[in-house]
Design a protein around this nucleic acid. Structure first.
Length: 418
RNA sequence: CGGGGUGUAGCGCAGCUUGGUAGCGCGCCGCGUUCGGGACGCGGAGGUCGUGGGUUCAAAUCCCGCCACCCCGACCA
């Protein structure tokens, strides 16, 4: 992408109403735009980051054998009454509206009920199980208080996965596989070292649920981590009794702030029985389906990554999620310089390496500052010096100094080819 | 939802105490000089001062209501 064609531009001053560092940087760099409290627009570069995260998650979901779908945001009152979760007293994050004829509708804050009912059409035999479905979908939650930029919004992108199993054992097997897949996701996006599988309250169905918590000072949760065993315990279940059951000792745990980036729930058969989701087993008996659900907050994850990977100059995206791999700085307007830069842009693009080509008529300092603020992993400078010498100036975002290298080496670094 | 704070140009802010009809920086437009870490000079455009009402000869400024935004707490299926 040529920067001269990108409509967003960077700004020097951080918006006063954002205090989260990630939100300040994402807005300054032009990745997102705030529409209202807790609701953000994703601009070209921000959308690229979201799509990169989605691709990583999608790969892992497909490996689990799950099917991708996309469900509607509109949900019926009738459906949620069956599980007694329509009342604002029971679920206080509902956004509700009504059809022209007065029929109430809700905007989906979760899809557990709708998907369970939908699957009654497709599950009838033990032969149909286990089965898992997932989607990337916009969730709407009327939070009392939005905060921390895209880390806690009223509208956010979520990957939700729902599994249908015939037995508790079958559910547990899948549950464990998803747990592993989630850890791989967080490792791939660069948060592996700081993300802990964490025990949390399980609600009505199981004693514990599992959360994936990333340690960060701006996190909303307080958890206790055992770094050696890579396990965490949410403050909400931090009791002697729970610790004993989990085989954890207080003196081995460290109190930290963390942001929940993933959550998994075991619903047992309660919901299936409420909604009438049954299958026929091998002996011809009707049995309730075992339900479990698994979520990753995609847009929140982007915020946590931005929060985690930043320095005084701006964002520092891990390669796996960066909106581009290379920030190509063109200094000067001499034809040799333009030719060298155009040619490299062309070659990298041909090799499938995403490049942000700074072809603007701007001064060097501004281009360097933007390269840093945008947080693109590699920076390549083309100038009269490099054009004359036939070299390229390459620097990683995290490196202090640049080095002059030849094209074959540069392509090898950036594209893994000669 | 309880407590605290803030709304003035696209963004960041001053002006408000002591009422007299709005200013600075960034950004934007034009011209010129610049050109390896957010350049400089000159000229210019841009604001119903969140909103509704009240007081007053006169309100960004004083009074009341409302709305929005932020922080702490509570909540987080």
């Amino acid at each position: 992408m040529r920067l001269s064609q990108l409509f967003t531009k960077t700004v020097k001053d951080a918006p006063a109403e954002e205090t989260a560092r990630s939100a300040q940087l994402l807005i300054r760099a032009g990745y997102i735009h705030k529409e209202m409290a807790g609701a953000y627009d994703y601009l070209p570069l921000g959308l690229l980051v979201l799509e990169n995260i989605k691709a990583i998650v999608r790969t892992e979901m497909n490996k689990l054998g799950a099917n991708e779908i996309l469900m509607t945001s509109l949900q019926s009152e009738e459906l949620w009454r069956q599980t007694d979760r329509w009342d604002d007293q029971k679920v206080d994050v509902w956004f509700k509206s009504a059809l022209k004829n007065g029929t109430p509708v809700g905007f989906g804050w979760s899809h557990e009920e709708p998907i369970a009912v939908m699957m009654k059409n497709y599950i009838s035999s033990y032969r149909d199980l286990p089965m898992a479905l997932y989607q990337f979908q916009t969730k709407l939650r009327n939070e009392l208080r939005a905060k921390s930029g895209i880390m806690r919004g009223r509208e956010f992108l979520m990957k939700d996965l729902y599994a249908f199993s015939s037995t508790p054992e079958e559910l547990q097997t899948f549950y464990d596989k998803v747990s592993d897949a989630y850890l791989r996701v967080f490792t791939k996006v660069g948060l592996g070292d700081d993300t802990y599988l964490t025990y949390a309250s399980g609600g009505a169905f199981t004693q514990f649920s599992h959360e994936f918590q990333t340690v960060t000072a701006v996190g909303e949760d307080t958890i206790y981590v055992n770094r050696a065993r890579k396990l965490g315990v949410n403050r909400e279940v931090y009791t002697d009794e729970a610790l004993t059951q989990l085989g954890l000792k207080r003196e081995e745990l460290e109190e930290v702030r963390a942001a929940e980036v993933g959550n998994i729930f075991n619903f047992g058969t309660t919901k299936s029985e409420q909604l009438g989701v049954y299958y026929t087993d091998q002996s011809g008996q009707q049995k309730p389906v075992y339900l479990s659900s698994y979520g990753i907050g995609i847009s929140r994850l982007m915020g946590v990554i931005a929060e985690h990977y930043a320095d005084a100059k701006g964002l520092v995206w891990p390669e796996a999620v960066a909106p581009a791999q290379v920030y190509l700085v063109r200094l000067g307007t001499q034809s040799e310089v333009i030719n060298q830069a155009d040619s490299l842009y062309h070659d990298l693009t041909q090799l499938g390496v995403p490049v942000l080509y700074d072809d603007r008529d701007a001064r060097p300092g501004e281009k360097f500052a933007d390269a840093d603020l945008l947080g693109i992993p590699h920076r390549v400078v083309v100038s009269d010096k490099t054009a004359a010498a036939g070299t390229y100036e390459w620097k990683q975002r995290t490196a202090e100094k640049s080095e002059l290298i030849h094209k074959n080496k540069l392509l090898k670094i950036l594209a893994g080819s000669d």
